[in-house]
Design a protein around this nucleic acid. Sequence first.
RNA 1: GGCCUCGUCGCCAAGUGGUAAGGCAACGGUUUGCAAAACCGUCAUACGGCGGUUCGAAUCCGCCCGAGGCCUCCA
Length: 479
Amino acid sequence: MAIKVYNTLTREKQAFHKQPGERVTMYVCGPTVYKPSHIGHMVGPVIFDTVKRFLTYRGYTVDWVVNITDVDDKLIKRAAELGTTVPALAAQMTRDYEDCLRKLNVTGINQMPKATEHIAGMIAMIGQLIGKGYAYPAGGDVYFDVSKDADYGKLCNRDPEQLEAGARIEVSDRKKNPGDFALWKGAKPGEPKDVVWESPWGPGRPGWHIECSVMSAAALGKTIDIHGGGLDLQFPHHENELAQSESANDQEFARVWMHNGLLRMGGGKMAGSVGNVVNIADLLQKHNPETVRFLLLGTHYRSPIEYSDDRLAEVGRSLQSFYRFFERFERMSGQSFHALPTAPVTAPAFVAGLKDKFLECLDDDFNTGGAVGVLFELLTALNKYADERKLEKDPPAEFLAAVGVMRELSNLLGLFWAPVAARADDALVGGLMKLIIDLRAEARASKNFATADTIRKRLTELKVTLEDRPGGTTDWRVG
RNA sequence: GGCCUCGUCGCCAAGUGGUAAGGCAACGGUUUGCAAAACCGUCAUACGGCGGUUCGAAUCCGCCCGAGGCCUCCA
């Protein structure tokens, strides 16, 4: 089985260009850290985390870098509004971003370089571009000259001529062509000192696009295997990164470009600039982080996802059947599903076809939506197996292996990483529940079903569900 | 105006030439003292519309309708 990947540059799915055993370098554009992260910021990380998990599973060694933009106009503005400094604001928002990644089980990032730590490299690259005639200083700024780059626009199929026709591009008499973009921005009067660096073209700070060109090369080399990011970054950001890097280095910048679809809300994309964002912190007040990850992976990564509270609630509901199975598994085996190893296991016959189907989905351009569907089929197969054999305890090795397959595959999607605290582990609550259940058991034993049902009904009103099992035992759960 | 996506069951969604996965919801059944959970079954002759190519199309081509992204900061 060969992995196929859709490449934005060629607009087609192609066989992945590396062989298992080789190192794969992956660079994904991260956030500008001026506000708390919203869910849209997590789409890329969750998807590329899954990409890394799968490539690793297939035998590749993946080196994944996500950058942090910690100096920029929005940061300067926001820091001034809050009465703080750019470095302080950036540090705080970076922690927020990292916290969100952790909460959504994004574990695969190897490095998160910051723009301000690579200013020297950016100045060097800008100098190189000027030396080769691709860029020109103008009034304290430095611009990239798109007319000098013969294949400018190849990523997004843009014609520089038509950029002029658009006329929405920022007008500046310093630019030679309307499509030219800033590599270096001269400092403006009144800007705080901590956003100003000295350069051969005067004090100032780097443009946005140059940081990715420099940091990706510094961390991963001049040619990277996978460059990822949101669809909204295709143009101009990625187009410009590409133009800079290839003009400066005379070698291919990225072998494969992967772009994830955008999260939408109310029919349009969710973005800080639109103002319809939902912060992760707020979101996690109401929903389990696994539900959020499940939602993001339930759709193919190149498609848009419509976000809504109802949608998340529905996803949460569909997740319940997995959790119930994990509890069932624990009851019969005495083992926690979450404690099972994630290493590959040989699939027993009754689930072997499903395992193959799951892996084929991921082989085909990381089709997580299809893979999630297979997980549900696997769940049904496991429950059915246990039902048919009336398994209550000491499940056979075959069954344990099949559950191991569930563990192995769901881990490729980064799902089910934490035991769900469905019931209070509070000693008092546990003791009270045992008391109530014991009393109800006595009522049932003496055929006093009216009392038994009243107890259950009252508990239901308190969002506690009782489940009577064969043999007279009763389990309870919240929800 | 230019570039680019997308339109599959009530809702979400996979499926890129070979006869429509899966989930939620709903309805029947098995099980249960009754429930809950689980399992079984029903639920799109049909893939926005109209043409075309083909032995064969949701999948390819053309046109139309509708939704969205980019062309300015944006994951």
